[in-house]
Nucleic acid binder design. Sequence first.
RNA 1: GGGCCUCUAGCUCAGUUGGUUAGAGCAUCGGACUUUUAAUCCGAGGGUCAAGGGUUCGAUCCCCUUGGGGCCUACCA
Length: 500
Amino acid sequence: MSENTTPEPELTDAEVSEQKAVRLAKRDRLNELGLEAYPVALPITDNIPAVRARFGDLEADATTGVTVGLAGRIVHLRNTGKLCFASLQSGDGSRIQAMVSLAEVGEENLELWKDLVDLGDHVFVSGEVISSRRGELSIMVREWKMASKAVLPLPNMHNELNEETRVRSRYLDLIVREQARANVFARAKTMASLRSTFTSLDFIEVETPMLQVMHGGASARPFVTHSNAFDMELFLRIAPELYLKRALVGGIERVYEINRNFRNEGADSTHSPEFAMLEAYEAYGDYNSIADLTQKLIQDAALAVAGSHVVTWADGTEFDLGGEWDRISMYHSLSDAAGVQITPETSVADLQAMANKEGVEVHLANHGKLVEELWEHFVKDGLTRPTFVMDFPVETSPLVKEHRSIPGVVEKWDLYVRGFELATGYSELNDPVIQRERFVQQAALSAKGDVEAMHLDEDFLKALEHAMPPAGGMGMGMDRLLMAITGLGIRETILFPLVK
RNA sequence: GGGCCUCUAGCUCAGUUGGUUAGAGCAUCGGACUUUUAAUCCGAGGGUCAAGGGUUCGAUCCCCUUGGGGCCUACCA
């Protein structure tokens, strides 16, 4: 530390809460007595879930003759005169009771336990595995050591933390709320399941740049940063798409990436500025084959997390992700719901009139944006089952191949689950000449003030000019996938969401 | 971005139509207790009522500004 650094202001008693001061004093006392407050190693022989699994069905008031040494965080303390009880919790939420009795540990050790051990501490105990008179699986402690002293108190275990504290201090949330731990495991299981499904189908996982010279692959506002080494503006990626397509050109024919995207846009219950995204591309596939793949990925993940295609959401509703999912046409479903025939030939004026009548506002309206907004207005909320909405207008989809038989439409689907867009899939555009035209059209939108329009990416076009195989491609929000399987809000699916 | 609501003890929350000393449960401190399960019983301490400014004899309460959070709304996954 340098001489002219402003010294840390010393905390006076008034600035440390009473509870923290008391615990700091206990920490000091442990060290003074030569009982380390933060020992480097402990003679651990077992863990709580393993002991529970082995002795969980012990009768009340039984002994085993088996001695174990294990550690856990104290989540309840019941000190009586000569026999103290503590509930130790392990990382998976399982608990075991420790009993500290005068007869077993002696007067001095019992007093030290009562004086120095607080709720929230990690402690090590060793002793015989027994069952209390009430039948609680317990360790009759012969020896105990502090494993790590908590100098701040645990929040009380009997009220839920408010949402702000949960998100800001997720570690506390994880300690006191079973569901918070379950969410972490659900996410990990989902990720493992996706990778396992991909591996079984010979897909290769790659990592592509997050810092990009030119952002592309989606319509969104980027975060901008600066490289000192190159003295240039760089963008945090909004999508990996254009790099994964370069991989396709290079012959990596079944490729996927699971990683973070960054979009400088609104944050709410279904949007976070950084979010995990899966993108997958399959050479010689199309939007139908990639829809099959998407359905399988999600159904496998549901099976891994919930043990069934029927998942139960946080609010108790059951939702069936099983079976073959509906595939409906955007134009047909819109026409049916609106009671008017709407086709790729319907004029902007007619669509605009309908939007005005319905009170649907469309920014920088063109045929495609109007159709999509009207579709959301008329059809979206009526979808109760997982549904692929197929065949989008060409204007809003600059990276998609034109439909094989319907003019004015592209081979794109959006997958709707639980009222939100969970994934999107394409028959990928691989004609470099048409791709260049689409970029030029986007550039024109950009010039008109559409901040989300894509930019012309010469380097990507050059890759396409070397011929990308025909391919189906798909993108899916990982946080949303968790939301679809668990029914949680996005801030619950992300372990540490961005907070100000 | 716009609108509405909110911030009180370590945690979760009451409350004050503006008036002496701001409350509860858990937690903490002292005492009792060898089978507790949010242990129980007796006693005690703990607050810049988000921050700053204003109105007032007097503000935690009313007004303004700033900050944090939530809900609705618009845009994006």
